[in-house]
Design a protein around this nucleic acid. Sequence first.
RNA 1: GUCCCCAUCGUCUAGCCUGGCCCAGGACACCGCCCUUUCACGGCGGUAACACCGGUUCAAAUCCGGUUGGGGACGCCA
Length: 475
Amino acid sequence: MSEIRVRFAPSPTGFLHIGGARTAIFNWLYARHHQGKFYLRIEDTDQSRSTDEAIEAILDGMRWLGLDWDRWEGSKGDALRQTERFDLYRQKISDLLEQEKAYRCYCTADELAERRKVAMKAKQVPRYDGRCRDRTGLAPDHPYAIRFKASKEGKIVVRDQVKGEVVFDSSTVDDLIIARSDGSPTYNLCVVVDDVAMGITHVIRGDDHLNNTPRQIQLYEAFGYPIPHFAHVPMILGSDKARLSKRHGATAVQQYRDEGYLPEAMLNYLVRLGWSHKDQEIFTLEELVEKFALEDVGTSPAIFNPEKLLWLNAHYIKNAAPPHLVESLLKQLNDVGVAKKRINTETLNRIIPALQERSRTLIEMAESAAYFFLDEIEYDEKTQKFLKPENLEILKTVRKTLDDIPFEHDPLLEALKGICETMGLKLAQVAQPIRAAITGKVVSPGIFDVLMLLGKEKAFKRIDFQIERLSKGEP
RNA sequence: GUCCCCAUCGUCUAGCCUGGCCCAGGACACCGCCCUUUCACGGCGGUAACACCGGUUCAAAUCCGGUUGGGGACGCCA
């Protein structure tokens, strides 16, 4: 079987985070590049920490990024859940026990934790001392965990496609627990059993797993299984070079969706963290699939830089076909108080192009689009600079002049130019008060565009409102 | 503490394998100028890096050794 098979194997203890997403992307790209299979496996063996909500959140994040996965023939659902497979794991564990490649350990979790604490304090290596390994005589009358009997001789070589050959001394490999005292199997055992069962050819994961690899290799050998290829990709760090975590800001991919980011921007950003193709910064999905290669994955950790992500997001917004943005934009508009029912999609489609090049996120775009739909607008504090008594005459003149002008680009241009000439003003001096009056802001798309998009009725209503206000001498 | 990984501009990176074309290229950010009805977009230009020390070599960012620094693992979590 020469088909490439990879998997993404998150544990459902929270949302899909940045690091996990990047690992998923690399796996997905590798599979698609080689026309292989990309499986999703939910590692929920620790049932006290796994939740269905977390599973849904992860799937949701994957779908948002467009990472579709293949269904493995042996799984019940689209994604394999390890809790479906406890019988298999138990079987494998008892095989190991029978062959004396594993043994019962009667040390309690508390005892182990205590010994570990003592060792750490004494600056010793916290290691299992193997006291149950060669136990003889009667077994204590209390629950036991099962440990794998690691081989302590020789070296273990991990041939890694990113890191190269990494050599571990077998004597440093602990007898790891493969079954908890409640009988449930643990991570290292399940990973090996499932990766073999699923025919995984390449294990691509974060390099925080590199130290696990020699243990897993010993398990492969104990079972007589072929060893897959490994590729350990460097981690993503926060701005202080510590492992990326909540205190660095948003770490869940969904959070970026909620903040108005486009999935293609997220994908493009993440894939360039630790992987590169010459000097290229922007990639279409097709290009990524075509160009992705493990040998171009870097070896050093990368710091997550929200500003570059923002730049990419701006790029993708700018270059998107307007209809592509509508659905997400409507959500954001709703959040800024513009209900969907009051939005005319056709109008929206005309507004979007005017906003694309000045919005870095969909939230920014929604905030800039709101005044087109609202009846009552709020006036930004900065507009005071333009909505002052000195400008009353300008507004009055504008109002009068535009009264019998069609709201189209050229007529509007001519009309405003005319006002500038007669009043001896620059266009900016006329445009800014109008902008402030009709948008409530000091920045917006070009003044002619805004007038046209807003329409005569709304524009006049807002200008009249300001004229009246200023006439009363209100500040 | 032990083991493992890593080390090019503030950040992401190209170049490193197969030494010379590199007094190191691109991108983000930052600064300046231009464009301009505001804000942006865009255009042009600028600041800014081979961690350190030794070795190999005619020649080292590139190869080797060490130092320092950072990260990770050391769990009845994954």
